[in-house]
């Protein structure tokens, strides 16, 4: 029974060290070294207005914007308060119907040929901010037509928002959808 006292007291000490001091210390150092990342990688315009986070995708459905991956989060697409996957199983008939509808919508928008899977399958967080360069390229002519600008101009914005694999080998090349659309609107 003499071990009850250390059980309670050590727990309290650990609460102070690991539950209090540790996160506070990390926050302090993070703010000093990486303030932008610690606060959510927010995109801020010249007037100081916050336009969103470069890490959190936004919904786009108008033809003059680059469309992101499908989302279908609760309440509305790309709802940042409702992260999490669709958890649809691969043989679920409702899910397969949804995918077929997404394929049809893309065909209706003028995309021909094979469709990259990420354009009809939702991500794990359903907040994925990226598309592959191939999936972005498929949308360039639609965006150019809707805006009445040259395809090369759109493609240049896409290229400018493309991140290569990190250190040349980690992960895959990816296009930040929000960055492209901010560029298209000339906001940034």
């Amino acid at each position: 029974m003499k071990d009850i006292k250390p059980a309670i007291l050590l727990f309290i000490m650990f609460t102070i060290i690991c539950g209090g001091i540790y996160p506070a210390l990390v926050t302090g150092v993070a703010y000093a070294l990486f303030p932008n990342q610690a606060k959510g990688s927010l995109i801020i315009d010249k007037a100081g207005k916050e336009l969103g986070s470069s890490l959190i995708g936004q919904p786009f459905s108008d033809p003059q914007y680059l469309w992101p991956r499908p989302s279908a989060t609760a309440e509305f697409d790309y709802n940042p308060s409702a992260s999490g996957g669709s958890n649809s199983g691969p043989t679920n008939p409702d899910y397969l119907k949804t995918v077929a509808e997404r394929v049809k919508a893309l065909r209706d928008s003028g995309i021909t040929g094979p469709i990259p899977a990420e354009l009809v399958q939702a991500s794990a967080s359903r907040l994925d901010p990226h598309l592959s360069p191939q999936a972005a390229r498929l949308q360039v002519s639609r965006i150019a037509k809707a805006r009445g600008i040259a395809e090369a101009t759109v493609q240049k914005l896409v290229d400018g928002a493309t991140e290569e694999p990190q250190l040349g080998i980690l992960g895959v090349a990816r296009v930040n959808v929000l960055a492209v659309n901010l560029g298209l609107d000339g906001v940034r």
Binding site: L96, P116, A117, E118, Q121, S123, H130, G171, V172
Partner: peptide, 22 residues
């Protein structure tokens, strides 16, 4: 997923995966 690829979709199964990790 063969049930998805036969709809004219190419590539690995991306449902529930983030693009950036590969």
């Amino acid at each position: 997923n063969p049930l998805v690829t036969r709809l004219g979709v190419v590539g690995a199964n991306m449902e529930g995966k983030e693009l950036r990790f590969g």
